[in-house]
Deep mutational scan, measured.
Amino acid sequence: MSDQEAKPSTEDLGDKKEGEYIKLKVIGQDSSEIHFKVKMTTHLKKLKESYCQRQGVPMNSLRFLFEGQRIADNHTPKELGMEEEDVIEVYQEQTGGHSTV
């Protein structure tokens, strides 16, 4: 019986991991920090939209990076291997420009 009891508790931990929340720091170019608590399985588009709304800027005017890689709207913290207190960097999107060649 103890084996049966242990097995469901392991499964519960697996389920808990799926719905687990982590805190992420979003740091802007001006070094301002906003902290977000997100589920591991939530699409990061929600975090990006919330950040842009707080900053009063359109979402397409900023780019969000985690460990140097651009974050897509459909990425989740779990897919990117994010952990508690990880940092997302935000930069002004640069458009235009010309070749110097």
Rank of each mutant, 00 (worst) to 15 (best):
M1A: 08
M1Y: 07
M1L: 09
M1C: 07
S2L: 12
S2P: 13
D3G: 11
D3E: 09
D3N: 10
Q4I: 12
Q4G: 11
Q4C: 08
Q4A: 11
Q4T: 14
E5K: 15
E5F: 10
A6T: 14
A6S: 11
A6M: 15
K7P: 10
K7E: 13
K7D: 08
K7V: 05
K7G: 07
P8V: 04
P8L: 13
P8D: 01
S9H: 10
S9L: 11
S9K: 15
S9A: 13
S9W: 08
T10I: 13
T10D: 05
T10R: 12
T10P: 11
T10N: 14
E11S: 11
D12P: 15
D12H: 12
D12M: 00
L13C: 07
L13F: 11
G14R: 11
G14I: 09
G14T: 07
D15W: 05
D15G: 12
K16Q: 10
K16L: 10
K16F: 11
K16S: 12
K17R: 13
K17Q: 12
E18A: 11
E18N: 12
E18H: 11
G19M: 15
G19S: 11
G19L: 12
E20V: 11
E20L: 11
Y21T: 14
Y21L: 09
I22N: 02
I22F: 05
I22R: 06
I22W: 01
K23V: 13
K23Y: 04
K23F: 02
L24E: 00
L24T: 07
L24P: 01
L24R: 02
K25G: 02
K25D: 00
K25C: 03
K25Q: 07
V26E: 02
I27R: 04
I27S: 04
I27A: 02
G28A: 15
G28E: 05
G28Q: 05
G28S: 15
Q29W: 14
D30Y: 05
D30V: 03
D30W: 03
S31K: 02
S31R: 14
S31H: 00
S31Q: 07
S32D: 04
E33H: 02
E33K: 08
E33S: 07
E33C: 03
I34T: 10
I34Q: 02
I34H: 05
I34M: 09
I34S: 05
H35M: 10
H35C: 14
H35F: 12
H35P: 05
H35S: 08
H35Y: 12
H35R: 12
H35T: 15
H35K: 11
F36C: 03
F36T: 00
F36Q: 04
K37G: 04
K37I: 02
K37Q: 13
K37S: 00
V38H: 00
V38A: 07
V38C: 06
V38P: 01
K39E: 04
K39G: 15
M40Y: 10
M40H: 15
M40N: 12
M40D: 09
T41K: 05
T41M: 14
T41G: 09
T42Q: 13
T42R: 05
T42L: 09
T42F: 01
H43P: 13
H43C: 15
H43G: 11
H43R: 15
H43S: 08
L44H: 02
L44N: 01
L44Q: 03
L44M: 14
L44A: 01
L44C: 04
L44F: 14
K45V: 10
K45C: 07
K45P: 02
K45L: 11
K45Q: 12
K46L: 09
K46N: 09
K46V: 09
K46Y: 11
K46R: 13
K46F: 08
L47A: 01
L47H: 03
L47P: 03
L47Q: 02
L47R: 02
K48S: 01
E49I: 04
E49P: 00
E49F: 07
E49K: 08
E49H: 04
S50N: 00
S50V: 13
S50A: 13
S50Q: 15
S50P: 04
S50F: 15
S50G: 05
Y51V: 06
Y51G: 01
Y51P: 03
Y51S: 01
Y51K: 05
Y51R: 04
Y51Q: 03
C52F: 02
C52P: 02
C52S: 10
Q53H: 14
Q53E: 15
Q53D: 14
Q53L: 11
Q53S: 15
Q53C: 01
R54T: 04
R54C: 09
R54K: 06
R54S: 05
R54F: 10
Q55S: 12
Q55L: 11
Q55D: 09
G56Y: 04
G56N: 09
G56T: 04
V57M: 08
V57Q: 06
V57L: 11
V57P: 01
V57R: 15
P58G: 09
P58S: 13
P58Q: 07
P58T: 04
P58I: 02
M59L: 07
M59Y: 10
M59G: 05
M59D: 15
M59H: 15
M59F: 14
M59K: 15
N60Y: 06
N60F: 06
N60H: 10
N60M: 03
N60Q: 06
S61G: 06
S61H: 06
S61M: 07
S61R: 07
S61Q: 07
L62H: 11
L62G: 00
L62N: 05
L62D: 03
L62E: 05
L62I: 15
R63N: 08
R63A: 03
R63V: 06
R63H: 09
F64N: 00
F64P: 03
F64M: 01
F64W: 04
F64H: 07
L65T: 13
L65V: 12
L65I: 11
F66C: 04
F66K: 01
F66H: 13
F66T: 02
F66N: 05
F66A: 05
E67Q: 06
E67H: 03
G68W: 04
G68N: 06
G68C: 04
G68P: 05
Q69E: 15
Q69N: 12
R70K: 08
R70M: 10
R70N: 13
R70T: 12
I71V: 14
I71T: 03
I71F: 00
I71P: 03
A72Q: 06
A72W: 00
A72K: 01
A72V: 11
D73W: 02
N74C: 14
N74A: 11
N74Q: 07
H75M: 07
H75L: 06
H75F: 05
H75W: 06
H75P: 06
T76L: 01
T76M: 00
T76G: 04
P77R: 05
P77T: 02
P77H: 03
P77L: 01
P77Q: 03
K78H: 08
K78C: 06
K78I: 14
K78V: 10
E79L: 11
E79P: 00
E79M: 14
L80T: 00
L80G: 01
L80A: 00
L80S: 01
L80F: 01
G81V: 05
M82L: 05
M82E: 04
M82Y: 03
M82W: 03
E83N: 10
E83V: 13
E83Q: 06
E83H: 05
E84Q: 14
E84C: 15
E84A: 09
E84D: 11
E85I: 05
E85H: 08
E85D: 13
E85M: 15
E85Q: 11
D86S: 14
V87P: 02
I88Y: 03
I88A: 03
I88M: 05
I88N: 02
E89G: 12
E89T: 13
E89P: 00
E89M: 09
V90M: 06
V90Q: 02
V90E: 01
V90F: 05
Y91D: 06
Y91T: 04
Y91N: 05
Y91F: 10
Q92W: 11
Q92Y: 11
Q92A: 10
Q92M: 14
E93F: 15
E93R: 09
E93M: 10
E93H: 12
E93V: 08
Q94G: 02
Q94I: 08
Q94A: 13
Q94P: 08
T95I: 13
T95G: 09
T95M: 13
G96N: 03
G96A: 01
G97A: 04
G97Q: 00
G97W: 00
G97R: 04
G97L: 07
H98T: 08
H98D: 08
H98M: 09
H98K: 08
H98E: 09
S99K: 08
S99I: 09
S99Y: 08
T100F: 08
T100K: 08
T100I: 09
T100H: 08
V101T: 10
V101L: 10
V101Y: 08
V101Q: 07
V101R: 09
V101A: 10
V101C: 07
